[in-house]
């Protein structure tokens, strides 16, 4: 068996209203396309990135630093897509 790949990347929330329901649902929808385990960490709180309710509870307001962690075959690809979401600022103006 090959060692599953582990990826970790830090992002900063740049949304005026924080990571609210709409961006959380975009993250969850994107995450569910991948088979790897995906987590987002804010300090002591860890959320399953495929779960909207979990993500909301990160309570990530504007400026919060989050760590995205992925473990599994498509980890690198998944992280890349999530970073792209943050980079586009979730299509908010």
């Amino acid at each position: 068996m090959t060692q599953p790949s582990v990826c970790r990347q830090r992002v900063v929330v740049n949304l005026d209203n924080g990571l609210h329901l709409v961006p959380c649902s975009q993250i969850a929808r994107t995450s569910r396309r991948f088979s790897c385990d995906l987590r987002i960490v804010n300090g002591d709180t860890t959320a399953d990135s495929k779960n909207v309710l979990d993500l909301m509870q990160l309570s990530a307001i504007k400026g919060t630093e989050l760590d995205i962690e992925a473990v599994g075959d498509d980890a690198a690809e998944a992280i890349e897509e999530l970073i792209a979401l943050f980079d586009s600022n979730f299509d908010e103006p």
Binding site: L21, C24, S25, A28, R29, V52, D91
Partner: peptide, 20 residues
């Protein structure tokens, strides 16, 4: 507009949440 549609898309994700 799309940003309003996105609110309902979020509701859809939420209510379809497997954990929930």
């Amino acid at each position: 507009g799309d940003q309003y549609g996105a609110i309902f898309a979020a509701h859809y994700q939420l209510i379809r949440d497997p954990k929930l």
